[in-house]
Nucleic acid binder design. Structure first.
Lengths: 345, 345
DNA sequence: CAGTGTATTGGGAGCGCTCCCAAGAAGGGG
DNA sequence: CCCCTTCTTGGGAGCGCTCCCAATACACTG
């Protein structure tokens, strides 16, 4: 039934490798950890023994002796359903996985659903059970980053929390993505471009709004606060905002929506109001999700390089764990977005 | 920069807890592991010490001494993009996470992209670095399950690989889901019900076809092999199959498609052929993905309880790790599906 | 009251590895 | 030819925990 009683599950130990190679345990360890202070002959002997025996280091023993874990945690706030939707979650995971693929690092997935789990996580991290943490979709008021900072636990977040972000972070260029989208609308002759924003406490949503404003000014259009409708990243919120906009500014001819899901809600309202897309109203979303591709008409959307973001987050974290030279500033990466033009604009 | 030199990262050890409680290390260990062979007074003393010191067991030490890891791996074949699409991946992860939430088990995520990574995984598993494995989207000819069986490593798969599945598995009731979908079509007066299948090497796809056939017979309709078009779970494949069907049986008035994504392809072809949905042709998909909800008209679809599947997989695996009494048959769970009726049928 | 159990308890002996010190080997300078 | 460096090397000393055995305490039984 359960595990055998055999030591180390019957796997060869470092000691056995050393014996086989005719060297001491310390030397074998050096070879396996790539220390330069070993002669070539010895190295080869040990490597041969490793190959013959099929030796794989025992991770637990390593962790215990070396006071590290060779594991990082990807912490996902489960209530953040937005994050779980395509394309985010899988793409981030793929990116992180790719970056870790030829590393010894393991990826631990931690879903944090409620406060109890949150406390458990804190305890978990306090107990130093991982070497570093990737934090996605953190809110500006989340205490977790401070805790990590205090513990001296390396950490990278996705999406800066505000303009003066202190943590290493990876973000897409929300400002420029929004700006380009609106510029595109203007270039196609739209004059009354509205926007539906995400929750503005989310810095990225704020940046998209900033980008919208910048493009409107740049185009020489009159800024009009009544063309700006705040929403909450949900489909229902998008619909509500669209209704408001239509009531306030019936003459609008384009809407830049800060997420595809909200755009789906907006599209529904536009359909009910008998506005044709794109003839009467052009629509642009954000995320380039599967919803965008399958919407009718297919939704023009701003694509974020999410997989690449995952990859960069992992790389940053590995650097952070390896130790950053003092004086290096906090690394933060901003990746370019891409406007995917489809039928809705 | 790097980690401090302090032992155990400055955390209290079991020894310290024991000292504080005025008991021996062994006794403290017993309390922490919930052994019944401890007096109440002692238990309380130890628990108090644990609370005061904020003791958290050192996982690595535990793993080393106990020859287990308290971790399970979720192995995801990365090429299987179908799995990465919503709703699968995130829902499975959520379910697994939920089942593990009040367990000491960690969840390790392992993406297997190519053969090299596959070999690495095998080595990894051979080295007993996890207590058990969740395997999703395994192909019938994947060697991994055999390897695990050989190693005596507990394992649960999602989706039986064939009728005589030997591994513990969790599956949705593909047969019944398909049968109910087709029955629904028939009950709405459709007489020429076609189907677009997934890759039939995938057992689940085969079962959906079986369900389709069963419903057709039960309805007293003439079975017609020309109403069955094989595809491959892709949108393009779905479109191709739909074209074939239309060419062969122009009079068809309903299609049961074995996945939403294929249904999206089929819908495109139907639109081009000027068949109205659902007036001329009713359409039903499978998965109840976001695509189904946002399709126009909204797609009727068979929902699988994916999160629940994840939860059950994890539970099964935990049982398996705890040890199954000899004589217990291989547990396998089949969960009911649900037909979500929308506008397309 | 000796004899036999049963319920607790303490702590030794590892688990497989890394860290580090000291010793041996090899090479160079005076 | 001897001494001092530098390069390698072996292996002791843990890392914090679980397993298990032996010891103690106590309660009965006859």
């Amino acid at each position: 039934m359960a595990a055998s009683r055999v030591r180390n599950g019957g796997r060869p130990t470092l000691e056995e490798v050393a014996a086989r190679a005719g060297v001491g345990r310390g030397t074998a360890s050096r070879v396996i950890n790539g220390s330069p202070r070993v002669s070539d002959a010895t190295r080869q002997a040990v490597e041969a023994a490793v190959a013959e025996l099929g030796y794989v280091p025992n991770r637990a023993a390593r962790a215990l002796a070396g006071n590290r874990t060779d594991a990082i945690a990807l912490v996902v706030p489960e209530p953040e359903t937005r994050f779980f939707a395509e394309p985010y979650f899988s793409a981030i995971v793929r990116g992180v996985g790719a970056a870790l693929a030829d590393t010894e690092m393991q990826l631990l997935l931690t879903l944090v659903g409620n406060d109890r789990e949150r406390r458990r996580l804190a305890q978990y991290l306090t107990a130093h059970r991982v070497d570093g943490v990737l934090l996605v979709a953190v809110h500006a008021d989340d205490p977790l980053p401070e805790l990590l900072e205090q513990l001296g636990m390396p950490c990278v977040i996705s999406g800066a929390r505000h303009a003066a972000e202190t943590l290493p972070s990876v973000d897409s260029d929300n400002f420029e993505g929004a700006r380009a989208a609106v510029e595109h609308l203007v270039s196609r002759g739209r004059r009354q471009v509205a926007t539906i924003t995400g929750r503005l406490e989310v810095y990225g949503a704020q940046r998209r709004l900033d980008g919208y404003r910048a493009a409107v000014s740049a185009a020489g259009l009159a800024p009009d606060e009544r063309l700006i409708a705040p929403a909450d990243f949900t489909e229902e919120g998008g619909a509500r905002a669209m209704r408001d906009l239509l009531a306030r500014r019936p003459g609008l001819d384009a809407v830049f929506v800060a997420s595809d899901v909200m755009a789906a809600g907006a599209r529904q309202v536009l359909r009910e109001a008998d506005r044709r897309i794109p003839e009467d109203v052009a629509l642009i979303g954000f995320d380039d999700s599967v919803v965008a591709r399958h919407m009718h008409p297919a939704l023009t959307s701003v694509r974020q390089p999410i997989e690449e973001m995952g990859r960069r987050m992992a790389q940053l974290l590995l650097d952070e764990i390896a130790g950053r030279a003092p004086g290096d500033e906090r690394p933060s990466v901003v990746l370019p977005t891409e406007l995917v033009v489809r039928d809705s604009s």
